[in-house]
């Protein structure tokens, strides 16, 4: 029999997306309103109060926030996934990885939507010094990169949740740390001077750095960082898969 796996992942992603955005009055507008509001707050704080002198600062912030939010939603937002999606696997022998994939694809729709808003904003409202060229296509491997690293962390966190229910609080501290020790608000040179090596430790810092380079600076990504981040993502993904394989089966009885 032909497998219906892809259809099923797509169906689950569609329903997940609908549940998230169409359940409230503003609908899909929330998907873009949230990063825009965050953008407004950080812009006021860093540009107006702290006098950050990065050119096209709103766009600079925006693209960083889009990647960060995808990472946050796909990791913190999925810690309890084995509990909330229990109805999918507690009566059949369905492969659990499909649940993760569908949720991340659902997040990807929001990501893509935000990216479109970003381009409209950047091209028409706050154009930078350089034009956007074909190099912007490097965003595709960068998206794959953040998808893989988020998927890995998602599997690690949600399987840990089976045994340690407070992993949510612990992960919140980490994401906060990653958020502030990342080049989301700071000029790259300041960031690298102040916290050397952080662009390699932080799972999404390199991705944000390279996303800005290919879109806003129209230069090639930093290849060593690019390669390192893919290696990082694959390692995390491997650990996630191992954990899910070993402990995921326990989810039906423990959660």
């Amino acid at each position: 029999m032909q497998s219906n796996k892809f259809e099923r992942i797509f169906l689950l992603a569609k329903i997940e997306f609908k549940l998230r955005y169409y359940e409230n009055q503003l609908g899909l507008i929330w998907a873009v309103l949230k990063p825009l509001m965050e953008l407004g707050i950080y812009f006021v704080v860093f540009k107006t109060i702290m006098k950050q002198d990065v050119p096209a600062f709103a766009s600079f912030l925006f693209i960083g926030l889009i990647f960060y939010n995808f990472f946050l939603e796909s990791t913190s937002g999925t810690i309890q996934i084995l509990r909330t999606k229990k109805y999918l696997y507690e009566y059949s022998n369905m492969n659990k990885i499909e649940i993760y994939l569908s949720t991340l694809f659902s997040n990807s729709i929001g990501f893509l939507f935000n990216l479109c808003v970003f381009f409209i904003f950047y091209l028409f409202f706050e154009p930078g010094d350089t034009n956007v060229t074909w190099r912007a296509l490097y965003l595709i491997p960068l998206y794959i990169n953040i998808f893989l690293v988020s998927l890995g962390f998602s599997m690690i966190l949600s399987t840990t949740f089976i045994y340690a229910k407070d992993i949510h609080q612990i992960w919140m501290v980490f994401t906060n740390l990653f958020f502030f020790v990342s080049p989301i608000f700071y000029r790259l040179s300041t960031f690298r001077e102040s916290v050397p090596g952080a662009d390699y430790i932080n799972p999404f810092a390199g991705i944000i750095i390279n996303a800005r380079k290919v879109v806003m600076d129209n230069v090639d990504p930093e290849w060593d960082l690019f390669a390192f981040d893919f290696g990082y993502a694959l390692l995390i993904l491997l650990i996630g898969l191992l954990l899910l394989n070993k402990f995921g089966a326990k989810a039906a009885e423990k959660l």
Binding site: N4, R8, S92
Partner: peptide, 9 residues
């Protein structure tokens, strides 16, 4: 969803 989980297209 259930139909799909049970293997239907």
């Amino acid at each position: 969803v259930s139909g799909s989980v049970l293997g239907l297209k």
